[in-house]
Design a protein around this nucleic acid. Structure first.
Lengths: 201, 201
DNA sequence: GACAAATACGAACGTTCGTGCTTTTTTAGT
DNA sequence: ACTAAAAAAGCACGAACGTTCGTATTTGTC
């Protein structure tokens, strides 16, 4: 009962790595079998279809994301410190602590945005969760008094996320060595604008 | 001498449309032949290889981008008005005036960032040109006195671009009806921060 | 250690991939 | 209208695609 799920996990980890480089549809059964040292059919049986494999790959990568980005943040005091950790951990996620080809969710975003199906549905849900997490962390920072009370936290989450997207492109496509500095400066400005400066407590 | 380049142009337009939906590597010779009503071999002869086809597709799409986004901006007075038009035209580019599957360059960015080759090289060059164009327009706005003189225009260009990336994801993946409003608000804040408020002329 | 169940394999399927050759049709210049 | 050139089609190829099926091997249980 355990051998099977072990292999499955190994497969999905490799699938995530490959997908971050070649895209989800670029993960072929044959190539994945080669990389895991399995036969095509033996591997295929774990999923039953390529669609299932794609969804499973996304789900397995979520676990890695939570471990790398979300959990460290939840172990940080709520409010601004947590917001900062989320940002820092995401940069780490996209630059080495994550998948070899960068953030799979960004890759999948542009790959699936015109392809209805379970994979797309799951990804949309995932992205909503992420934005909601960001917004919630923003709201916590409002509660602590660090952020102003009239802050639009959904807007905050959107802008937070767009900074990550900009960083990802600058880093991975342009190989810009200053990408992290750029993103950090942009992030600082976002935070500064959100700060509660009315009551100089 | 003209029939050939006519067909070629027709092919590349369809290739751009398909690529915006399925990615560059998702544009197969067979599918492209079907959509253009040609035979695989007859179509193939125009390019000689799939790599060539991909580069040609990107180049042809640049022309559409310039026509849709850049040219209208250049016909607008330099400075802040031109910056605003660039933003507005880009939103139009990504939502209807451009390709059916959204901005091809964004799709190609995540698709090619780990695949060295002519296509990637060309895309990187293109993206640099785009950022430089944004930075230059920012500098013009400094010259007109609309933007502050200590504005980091490269940073401005990067942030401008990241707003577009955020919009694109919100619009195309999440189908968020408020994506344009979100992006516009974010853009307004970027502009406001860049404004020259020191000398209240 | 035997046995049932779970897991993996090998071979093959029909299809589509990118890419060559050869032939036919269409075009442009006289 | 005739012709040389350009463009498109026809056909075929080896490889890889996702998937299925039957068989072998490994596993966990008694």
């Amino acid at each position: 009962m355990s051998k099977g799920s072990d292999t499955r996990q190994t497969i999905l980890r490799e699938a995530g790595n490959l997908a971050s480089i070649n895209g989800l549809s670029g993960v072929t059964i044959g190539a994945l079998a080669s990389h895991t040292g399995m036969s095509k059919s033996g591997l295929f049986r774990h999923f039953g279809s390529k669609d299932e494999l794609q969804v499973a790959t996304l789900k397995a990568t979520i676990d890695r994301f939570i471990e790398t980005v979300v959990r460290p943040a939840l172990h940080t005091p709520r409010g601004l410190p947590r917001v900062r950790v989320l940002f820092e951990r995401w940069l780490a996620w996209a630059t080495g602590a994550g998948l070899p080809g960068g953030c799979l969710f960004i890759a999948a975003s542009v790959e699936l945005d015109d392809h209805p199906g379970q994979a797309r549905d799951f990804l949309v849900e995932t992205q909503h969760d992420w934005l909601e997490l960001l917004a919630t962390c923003g709201r916590k920072a409002v509660e602590t008094g660090e952020f102003r009370t009239d802050l639009d936290c959904d807007q905050f989450a959107h802008e937070f996320n767009s900074i990550l997207l900009g960083f990802h492109q600058a880093h991975r496509l342009l190989r810009d060595p200053g990408a992290a500095v750029r993103a950090s400066r942009q992030f600082d400005r976002l935070v500064e604008d959100a700060l509660n400066v009315g009551t100089h407590a």
